[in-house]
């Protein structure tokens, strides 16, 4: 591993002052440390932010919004009663991710900042426009395909986060501080599509630090009908092949408002606004959900031999809407976000 400076600032101000080009923020380290070991990331300076004060709280603001500090551990957030009550699909998504040990270490800010698991991005000897601009895209050359929405010739990678999918659906906001002061970025606009500059992964400016994530008060209005669904080729500890976060606000037997986002299909959590518009005002039924899923994937195109993934994403979307319409379960399923969530013999939170 390349040698690097390691500092542990005690205040946010010190942390921001310590930043310089070539520096990275270190939270739980569950992704960055792996990438430093393979050589895919070679920072000159690692700034450990886990000692910064005031970033580990979950609080309800006067307007009903929920503010989550960027250093809150994924497992603490998933188990928090406010989240279970007001944003259950956020908890469900968190519990569908990684493993218990990793969730104990991983932070909220780190989850937002995690890098694609594209094998070629992680392999420093591969051509990758995201990691090394201008080198090409070995992933596209390989032909299997990855993203089905929003990809470009330069990059076909997907964002691996489960957590960010319901956040995008619920209009969550990222709070950041930087050399130019504080600002807010909607989660749906936080990650960038690759275009010609896949190395620009987020809207963060150099030196900006995530302070927290805020779930707006209106997010809590979806709590009764909100589900996250994740399809994968083993039951736990695997990234999604496709996923979807679906939330419905039902009034008088009709969908007053729908929220829908797809995971593992693009370089960002994919907010399906056309499908949301199609659902609004309608009576929920299977045919409607199928049409909404069609609409959500209308712009999809395979980035290789993965046309099957469009089909699977459509099915995942329709199912997530059905699950949301059926109502948020009173208790977290034993296998969160899983088609096998009902299996009684399973251990909780596999």
């Amino acid at each position: 591993m390349k040698r690097f400076d390691f500092i542990q600032p005690a205040t946010i101000e010190d942390a921001l002052a310590a930043w310089e080009p070539g520096a990275v923020w270190l939270g739980g380290g569950t992704n960055i440390v792996d990438l430093m070991k393979t050589g895919a990331m070679q920072p000159d300076k690692v700034i450990d932010i886990t000692r910064l004060p005031g970033l580990s709280e979950i609080e309800t603001l006067p307007d009903g919004a929920i503010r989550i500090g960027s250093l809150v551990r994924n497992s603490d957030l998933a188990d928090h009663p406010q989240i279970a009550r007001h944003a259950p699909m956020v908890a469900e998504a968190l519990l569908a991710g990684a493993s218990g040990q990793l969730r104990n270490a991983a932070t909220v800010g780190g989850n937002l900042m995690q890098r694609t698991r594209c094998a070629y991005f992680q392999d420093p000897t591969a051509a990758c426009n995201r990691r090394a601009p201008g080198t090409g895209c070995d992933a596209a050359q390989a032909g299997d395909g990855m993203a089905i929405l929003g990809w470009s010739e330069a990059c076909i990678a997907t964002n691996p986060s489960d957590f960010c999918v319901p956040l995008a659906a619920l209009d969550a906001v990222v709070e950041v501080q930087g050399p130019e002061g504080a600002r807010e970025i909607p989660v749906a606009a936080f990650h960038l599509l690759p275009g010609d500059t896949p190395d620009r992964e987020t809207d963060l400016a150099p030196g900006e630090l995530i302070i927290g994530v805020r779930l707006p008060a209106e997010a809590t209005g979806f709590a009764a009908n909100a589900r996250y669904l994740k399809v994968r080729d083993r039951t736990s500890y695997a990234f999604a092949m496709t996923s979807a976060a679906a939330a419905l606000r039902l009034e008088d037997g009709r969908i007053a408002e729908a929220r829908l986002a797809l995971g593992a299909v693009a370089a960002k959590p994919w907010r399906a606004t056309e499908a949301e518009a199609l659902l609004a005002g309608q009576a929920p039924d299977d045919a409607l959900f199928d049409r909404a899923a069609e609409a959500a994937l209308a712009g999809a195109a395979p980035s290789g031999g993965n046309a099957w993934k469009i089909d699977l994403a459509r099915r995942t979307t329709a199912r997530s809407l059905r699950m949301a319409a059926a109502g948020t379960p009173a208790e977290m399923p034993a296998l969160p976000a899983s088609p096998f969530g009902h299996s009684a013999e399973d251990h909780a939170h596999a």
């Binding site: 094998a119 070629y120 070995d138 390989a142 083993r234 039951t235 736990s236 013999e345 399973d346 251990h347």
Partner: peptide, 26 residues
């Protein structure tokens, strides 16, 4: 295998899947 270089692209236990506990019961 990657078709161009021939290396194994999933050469770690995150990419090369074996069952986890939740896959094994009964």
């Amino acid at each position: 295998h990657d078709p161009a270089r021939g290396h194994i692209v999933n050469a770690d236990l995150a990419g090369y899947h074996v069952p986890v506990n939740a896959d094994v019961h009964g």
